[in-house]
């Protein structure tokens, strides 16, 4: 046993926890990508497998919950270990909800396939692109523990909100123009809402990264110093 091998058992457990989170992240990214594809290409064939993948995501969330409980109760983690465990807990909840939203999008895609066609909405593909990009950037920031990259993700959230506003107006226009487009337009509205939630959840994960690395809580626009004893600002 070398001098570096202190609390080896505990650190192995931490590594396993991280591995589970990464597995969840990988699954969710794929889920979102496939769900978005099925909407953009009006292809409902992969929806069944998607739902099965989401079940795995749910399983992982439960497993991570249990592991977090055990680590907190039994190992007295401190400092960065404690923040990592707490951040992992939050991130797994966010990822699970992302998975659910992706499933919603896929189900909407399946219903869209049966609905009468509707003209292409360009904003939709842009929204998909921005949202998926935010998800992958927030996860990359988590893996590389990069708070600056995380902060940039938070800044992108406004764009998604704007896009959802635009889509709302466009879709209303489509619906007023031709009542047969109603069901398709409503499904696309749903899809845009789910995409916006996915983007919000990606922002949450980015905020968790900042918490993990710097110990600061930047949720809800506080963006400032940690609650106690820290230096103000920056």
């Amino acid at each position: 046993m070398s001098r570096q091998a202190r609390r080896r058992h505990f650190h192995e457990e931490l590594d396993t926890l991280q591995a589970r989170l990464m597995e969840m992240a990988g699954l969710v990214e794929r889920l979102i990508g496939q769900a978005s594809e099925s909407v953009l290409r009006r292809d409902a064939s992969m929806v069944g497998r998607l739902i099965a993948d989401d079940d795995r995501v749910d399983e992982l969330e439960i497993e991570i919950d249990e592991r977090v409980m055990e680590l907190l109760a039994l190992q007295q983690p401190m400092a960065v270990d404690l923040r990592q465990i707490v951040a992992t807990n939050k991130a797994s909840n966010d990822l699970e909800r992302m998975g659910d939203h992706a499933v919603n999008i896929a189900k909407a895609a399946r219903r869209l396939a049966d609905a009468p066609a509707i003209p292409e909405v360009r904003e939709l593909s842009e929204m998909v692109a921005v949202a998926t990009d935010m998800v992958s950037r927030s996860l990359a920031a988590y893996v590389s523990r990069d708070p600056e990259a995380a902060r940039r993700v938070c800044e992108t959230d406004d764009r998604v909100d704007d896009l959802r506003g635009s889509m709302y107006r466009i879709l209303v226009t489509h619906m007023l123009e031709d009542p047969r487009r109603l069901s398709a337009a409503l499904e696309l509205l749903l899809v845009s809402q789910n995409l916006e939630r996915i983007a919000d959840l990606a922002t949450n994960i980015a905020e968790d990264v900042v918490f993990l690395v710097e110990g600061r809580n930047i949720k809800h626009g506080t963006g400032a110093s940690p609650r106690r004893g820290g230096d103000a600002g920056s």
């Binding site: 046993m1 091998a5 202190r6 609390r7 080896r8 058992h9």
Partner: peptide
């Protein structure tokens, strides 16, 4: 103490 704990684990 920590070393003893690691030892017990092994």
């Amino acid at each position: 103490t920590q070393r003893i704990e690691e030892l017990i684990y092994e």
